[in-house]
Simulated assay, not measured.
Amino acid sequence: MRMRVEQSVLLVVDVQERLAGVVADGTAAMSEVLWLVRVAQRVGVPVIATEHCADKLGPSVSALRPLLPPSAVVHKTHFSAVSEGGLFRAPEGQRVQWIVAGMEAHVCVMQTVLDLLELGREVFVVDEAVASRDPHDKALALERMRRHGADIVSREMVAFEWLVHAGAPEFKSVLRGFIR
């Protein structure tokens, strides 16, 4: 199965101030998340972001906040973003394909992915855009998500599948602005 603009939603899980500072390669992962958000917006894919216990972990990182309308942010206390139901009430939350990025890979990202899969969603986890405090935990989480049916993909796989072909109206601007 390929990722399609009209079926996709980008889910950014808990890319928050306090988490970004403690995960391994947090700056790099955050940069990849921002890249994905900008590409999604360029091609018309909606973005939903979650914030886990924002009163303790802080809001989404400052670079992400201006990119999202308040209606695209779902607050949660459960590790899985699916558990409290707000994820599906967000704009475009009923889409079938979920492209997932965020923190921490072995906790909130993984539990959300497993629940999305259980509900019959097609899930794509962007390898370089997920992080954990311990790289070993990230590796185990990616393997477990893969075993349960998630596709582990790269950011460029996502972008080029959304674009479909070189004649797509957004192709040149995405190529110039995002593909190095």
Rank of each mutant, 00 (worst) to 15 (best):
V100G: 00
K138V: 11
E84P: 07
S80E: 03
S71Y: 04
E128V: 08
A141P: 04
E6G: 10
M1H: 13
V37T: 02
L87G: 01
G26V: 07
L163D: 05
M103I: 15
S173T: 15
Q111V: 05
V45T: 06
M103K: 01
R146Y: 09
V107T: 06
R42W: 00
R144M: 13
D137L: 04
R121A: 06
V22I: 15
I179K: 00
A29M: 14
G86L: 05
V164C: 08
P169E: 10
V107Y: 09
M103P: 01
H148T: 12
V109M: 14
W35D: 01
E17S: 12
L36A: 08
L117A: 04
Q7E: 15
A129I: 12
R180K: 14
R144F: 07
V15G: 01
L34A: 10
S31T: 14
I152Q: 03
V15N: 03
K172C: 12
A63T: 13
V174T: 03
P135N: 11
D134S: 11
V158Q: 00
T77K: 12
L142H: 03
V23T: 10
E104P: 02
S31K: 08
V73N: 01
A101L: 05
L87S: 02
S154I: 08
F124T: 00
V5I: 12
L117E: 05
R176W: 10
S60M: 08
C108T: 07
R146W: 11
E156M: 07
D127C: 12
V74G: 03
L142T: 07
S62Y: 07
W35F: 15
L119M: 13
A63P: 02
Q16R: 08
L67K: 01
V12I: 13
G120Q: 11
F79A: 01
E143P: 03
V74L: 10
L57Y: 09
M157D: 13
V125T: 05
S80Y: 12
L34Y: 07
R38L: 06
V9Q: 05
S62Q: 13
V22P: 07
L116R: 06
R147T: 13
A101D: 02
Q16Y: 02
A20E: 07
S132Q: 07
M157P: 03
G167R: 13
L11R: 03
L175E: 12
E17M: 13
L10M: 04
A101F: 09
V158K: 01
D127G: 06
A159T: 06
L87K: 12
L140W: 08
R65K: 15
V39F: 01
L117I: 14
A105R: 00
V45L: 02
A129F: 11
L57F: 14
L114I: 12
E118S: 14
I152H: 06
I179E: 05
V130N: 00
M110F: 11
P69V: 11
Q97F: 01
M3L: 15
R89V: 05
F178C: 11
E84D: 09
G93M: 01
V158I: 10
A81I: 00
D25W: 06
L19A: 07
D151Q: 14
T27I: 10
L19W: 00
A24I: 02
V73P: 02
H52D: 09
V130Y: 01
P66I: 06
D127P: 01
A90M: 09
V43E: 02
S31P: 09
P70S: 04
H106S: 10
